[in-house]
Design a protein around this nucleic acid. Structure first.
Lengths: 213, 213
DNA sequence: TAGAATATGTCAGTCGCTGACATTTGTCAA
DNA sequence: TTGACAAATGTCAGCGACTGACATATTCTA
């Protein structure tokens, strides 16, 4: 069940003037996210119903599901741009650079995002640690999307087909594991440490995975 | 939501005589799995309701949810032992062996299982490819359980704490990616090829991940 | 064989999520 | 400005996964 897609109808070419309609739309979207984050952090994820969220955002429950395909999607609703940032960051790396180094540099996007959205990211991390359904969504949807970006970027750089060559997927998998590890450390540590440092540290072992004892 | 646990109440110490009650219990469990697999392969996953499954297994819907915590869990209900097989296989490897080699050898368990349950594994693979909810469950529950086994085994062998040292998690992540890649190849190829060979092939690149271009 | 333990059925109910239809609101051209 | 079209929203009814509670039946054990 769950996790269905919602057609987000992104800007129709003209990225300059959003217009009142689009402005209102993204406002209710932001309201829903804010309402959800507030309630989740106050009462917990399972303990908050989608009706509660809609109520607090002052829209109907039906409207919530027009903006988000699932309750979990509202929680992660403020991570939209991150995927593209990741993609762009990867695309901008010089092709002369080693791939692992490119991946490392791309992690700056993540670190940047975490720094600018501390509260939200911490909430997401804590809920993922405490609620199986949130953890499942994070793994199965959010992280899988990022992984796909990594895979495609690596495949492009290696000049191979990701469907027939395992290397992109395996390298991306190792990187995602490093991200998970770092994120967990950051979350359980109360978001005090330097996220970027944690990631780079975790990624350090990729260079000599094969040599592991 | 979903994916809650069910207390499976495994054998009460005495592994010899299951007794009629336990026999009946595991029989209805098997019936449910068989019914589900049949209906899933005939009509698809989303198109089959838990009421349908219960009906076909000739039990009440409530009973289904006493045996399995979710519809997805019924689909993967015949994968119980695999996790422990994996663990045992890993525990039995000599500590002198390189860890990657141990992981490779442990993959024999998976390959064995796939060989002995072709139909079921192929169905699971196809449904995971076709239904987001199945794919999500596979990633978030099944694969995550396996990964945890790998992590613990590697941590033990390295003599490090998996909570503070990233290497076990990163190596396990790379391995899981190789498994995913191999499984996808096997599934889309119609389950014709040698699964073990596909896994070993995919794992081949782990040795020199850091050197990638 | 009595009594405890467990498995099952039944029923009512919650909650996530969706389709259908009517209403409002923003947009854009005449 | 107005009038028509498109998109956003509200309302309502309903499906389906999943759960708690209680009664009943079956199995185990002393």
């Amino acid at each position: 069940m769950c996790y269905g897609r919602v057609v987000t109808e992104v800007a129709t070419g003209n990225a300059a003037a959003p217009g009142r309609r689009e402005r209102k739309r993204s406002q209710t979207r932001a309201d829903l996210i804010a309402a959800a984050h507030h309630l989740f952090s106050e009462q917990g994820f399972d303990e908050t119903t989608t009706a509660d969220i809609a109520e607090r955002a002052d829209v109907s429950q039906r409207t919530l599901f027009r903006h988000f395909p699932s309750k979990e999607a509202v929680l992660y609703g403020d991570m939209e741009g991150l995927r593209h940032e990741l993609r762009d960051a990867l695309a901008e790396r010089p092709s002369g650079e080693s791939i692992v180094e490119s991946l490392r540099q791309a992690m700056l996007s993540l670190a940047n995002d975490v720094e600018q959205n501390r509260g939200s990211r911490l909430l997401q991390g804590r809920l993922a640690a405490g609620y199986p359904s949130v953890s499942a969504y994070s793994r199965a949807v959010v992280q899988t999307e990022w992984e796909r970006e990594l895979i495609e970027a690596v495949a492009l750089r290696l000049g191979v087909d990701a469907a027939s060559d395992a290397r992109p997927e395996v390298l991306a998998g190792a990187t995602m594991s490093a991200i998970r590890f770092a994120t967990r450390q950051w979350t359980t540590g109360g978001a005090k440490g330097d996220y970027l440092l944690l990631i780079l540290d975790a990624m350090g072992c990729i260079d000599d995975l094969g040599m592991t004892t």
